[in-house]
Design a protein around this nucleic acid. Structure first.
Length: 295
DNA sequence: ATGTTTGTTCCGAT
DNA sequence: CATCGGAACAAACA
């Protein structure tokens, strides 16, 4: 579920609460394998790490993280990275339905709980990795491999080094509908379906307009609106849809769903005309034909 | 029963 | 060979 604002909310809370905490135990739900589910899933892991080989098994993971101190928690695109005091990072991607919950050990078992890491800092805490659909991943990666892993991502949408010129060039390197380019993490990272939809609406750009038709002025407007909705999303602690799958580390839903511009809407808040809904590249897309003319 | 879902990768067509 | 779009991954809900 999470896009950049949701991952950022989780990451900054975890950094606040787990920085310098020490991992005292790791429990993996019976049948849940960090890297070795079905053969197909193993393949998925390998590819998702690029040329980097995933570590072979749960035991290796546990051995390497036990008694390690968390140096810091940070966000890489939509991944959460736990820097350990040794040579490794724990990398977590929540995909569609992943959750990270900070719990007291006595708190009742959470639904779809897959991995429980116990930390020792100001008492004893659980970090529970829950994932209903199991598209998420949790892997151990060496510092050297992490830099290789990061190469597969384009500029983070909130990176101040990303200028309108670079942004435009990145979009144009893909000859496709502008919305598809925005969702391509290799070009620009962090943007997901909801925030892309709202940013295009604010920019008056039809989602199916070709990247070829963009000019620097439009790119600058779009980039500013992307940052506007992402920063708003962070301020509002993320978006929680009706399925309630996104919650923060305390189990609380976000508020940004109350501030969507066009996503999930029936009528346009600006011109009152009916909002269009269309699947673009398999992703539900909302737009207003009056405010976002296809031209 | 069918269609829907915040993400990413695989695979076939071009 | 590079690139794009659709399918697949899996589970719950309406």
């Amino acid at each position: 579920m999470p896009e950049l604002p949701e991952v950022q909310t989780i990451t900054s809370d975890l950094n606040k609460y787990l920085k310098n905490a020490v991992i005292k135990s790791v429990e993996i739900e019976k049948g849940y394998k960090l890297f070795e589910l079905a053969p197909k899933r193993l393949k998925l892991f390998k590819f998702s790490l690029g040329k980097v080989k995933a570590q072979p098994n749960n035991e290796f993971f546990i051995k390497k993280v036990l008694d390690q101190r968390i140096v810091s928690v940070s966000r890489i695109a939509k991944n959460i990275s736990f820097e350990l005091a040794n040579d490794f990072h724990i990398l977590i991607h929540l995909a569609m339905t992943g959750q990270l919950l900070l719990r007291k050990p006595e708190h009742p078992k959470d639904k779809f709980q897959r991995v429980v890491i116990t930390f020792n800092k100001n008492g004893c805490y659980h970090l529970r990795f829950c994932d209903m659909r199991m598209f998420g991943k949790m892997v151990l990666i060496s510092k050297k491999d992490l830099s290789k892993f990061m190469e597969k991502y384009g500029y983070d949408a909130l990176n101040v080094d990303l200028t309108p010129e670079i942004f435009l060039k990145a979009l144009k390197s893909k000859r496709t509908a502008v919305k598809n380019a925005l969702l391509d993490q290799k070009k620009i990272s962090g943007i997901g379906n909801i925030y892309a939809t709202d940013a295009l609406f604010l920019s008056g750009i039809h989602p199916e307009v070709s990247t070829k038709s963009l000019d620097l002025k439009k790119a600058e407007i779009l980039l500013n609106n992307i940052r506007l909705v992402l920063n708003e999303g962070i301020k509002n602690r993320g978006s929680t849809l009706n399925d309630k799958m996104y919650v923060d580390v305390f189990g609380k839903p976000g508020n940004h769903q109350n501030y969507f511009r066009v996503y999930g809407k029936k009528t346009c808040a600006v011109c009152k005309n009916s909002v269009q809904f269309k699947k673009i590249n398999g992703r539900g897309t909302y737009f207003c034909l009056i405010c976002q003319p296809f031209a």
